[in-house]
Design a protein around this nucleic acid. Structure first.
Lengths: 191, 191
DNA sequence: CAAGTTTGGCTAAGTGGCTTAGCTTTAGGG
DNA sequence: CCCTAAAGCTAAGCCACTTAGCCAAACTTG
C-alpha cells in the first residue's frame, strides 16, 4: 500500500474544507477518510478520534477568525473599527459555514494554541472597546454583549431563523449600529 | 406483554424531561425507550423517528417559551416589559437546558402548531417593541437584534463560553439595559 | 359475551458511525 | 543492508437509528 503521507495538519485542514462543504454536523471520519484516500482507522494515527478532530478544528477556526477580526480593526477606531470587525466576523461565518460552528467550542486548557487563539479573539474585541473608553468590568460586560449579538445573529441566520422578507444585511447593519450607540452610552459601573 | 399506554404526547413530554436532565445532544431514542419502559422500536408507533421527535420537542419548547415570554410582558411596557421578557427568556433556558436548544429549530411549515408557537414568540417581541414606537421594518430589524442578543448570550453561557470571573447575571442585565437604550434611539428607516 | 379489528407492544435484522486490536509494509537511519 | 518507527491495512465490536414482520391486548360491534 503506497503511503499517502498524511500528518495531523493535513488531516485537520482537509476536515475544515470538508466541513465547509457538507456542514459541521455532517463532518464524519468516514467521509474525511475517503476524501483523503485512506481507510477510516488510518486517521487514528493522526488524531485521537472524532472529538479530538473537532477540537483541533476549533483551534484552526478560532485562530483564523481571530486573525480576521484583528486585521479588520487595525488602523481604525470607534464605530469604524466596530463595523469593520463585525463585518469580518459575519463574513467569516458566511465563507466558512462548517468551520464557524467549531469556533464555539470552549478552549481546551490543555491546548496552549487553543488558549492563545481564544485570547487573540477576545483581545481584538477589547481593543475596539477601549476606543469607546470601556475598560475593566465594563469591557467584560460589553465584550459579552458584542459576542452574544454577533454570534446570535450569525447562528440564527445560518439556521434559517429569519423568515421575514426584510433584508438580512440591513438588519445586521442596524444591529451593529445599535451596538455602537450602546457602547457610546454604556451604563458605567466604574469597574 | 402488558401495555404501557403511551401516546405521542407522553413520549414527547418524557423526551423533554430527559433532555433537560442529560442535555439535548444526549437525548437518544434508546435512553427514552428505557425510561418509558418499552423497547426502542416501540417508539416508532408514536413518533416517526429521531428527527421527528426533535421536531415535536421543538414545538413543545417553543410553545412553552412563547407563553412565558408573553406572560412576562403582560401589563408592562417599555423597559419594564423588555427586562421582564428578557429575564423570562434566560430563565427558561436555565430551567430547561435540554429544551432550549430545541427551540432553535426552524418551524416546520407543515406543522400548524409549530408555526403558531413561533408566531406567538415573535409577536410577544413585536408587542414590546411597539412600546418603543418601533413598527414595520424597524420592528423586524429590532426583533432580529433582540433575538440575536438573547439567544447568543444564553447559548454562550450554556456552552461555558464566559470564562472570566465577572458576574454573568450582571453582564446580562447590562446587555438588556443596552438594548433598551438602543431601542429608544433606534436608527429609524421609516419602514 | 364472542368475534373481528385495530393497535401497541415485541424480536430480528440491517445500516452507518466510532473505536480498538493487531498485522503488514513502507521509509528512513545506523 | 538491516532494523525500527510509523503509516497504512483488515477484522471485529459497540452504539445509535431504522425497517419488517409477528403477536397479543384492548376496543368495537353484533
Amino acid at each position: 500500500m503506497p503511503r499517502v503521507g498524511l500528518n495531523q495538519q493535513t488531516v485537520v485542514r482537509e476536515a475544515a474544507r470538508l466541513a465547509d462543504e457538507v456542514g459541521f454536523a455532517q463532518l464524519t471520519l468516514a467521509a474525511l477518510a475517503s476524501r483523503l484516500g485512506v481507510a477510516l482507522p488510518s486517521l487514528y494515527k493522526h488524531v485521537r478520534g472524532a472529538d479530538a478532530l473537532a477540537q483541533k478544528l476549533a483551534v484552526l477556526a478560532t485562530a483564523e477568525l481571530a486573525t480576521e477580526m484583528t486585521t479588520a480593526a487595525v488602523g481604525r477606531s470607534g464605530g469604524d473599527a466596530l463595523r469593520a470587525m463585525a463585518d469580518a466576523y459575519r463574513d467569516y461565518a458566511h465563507r466558512h459555514p462548517g468551520r464557524y460552528p467549531a469556533t464555539q467550542r470552549v478552549p481546551d486548557p490543555a491546548d496552549p494554541e487553543h488558549i492563545e487563539a481564544g485570547e487573540r479573539a477576545v483581545n481584538a474585541i477589547f481593543a475596539v472597546l477601549r476606543g469607546y473608553g470601556l475598560t475593566g468590568d465594563d469591557a467584560v460586560d460589553a465584550t459579552r454583549a458584542l459576542r452574544s449579538a454577533l454570534h446570535g445573529f450569525v447562528t440564527l441566520e445560518a439556521a434559517g431563523g429569519f423568515g421575514l422578507p426584510r433584508d438580512v444585511d440591513r438588519s445586521y447593519h442596524q444591529l451593529v449600529a445599535s451596538m455602537d450607540i450602546s457602547f457610546r452610552s454604556w451604563p458605567r459601573t466604574g469597574g
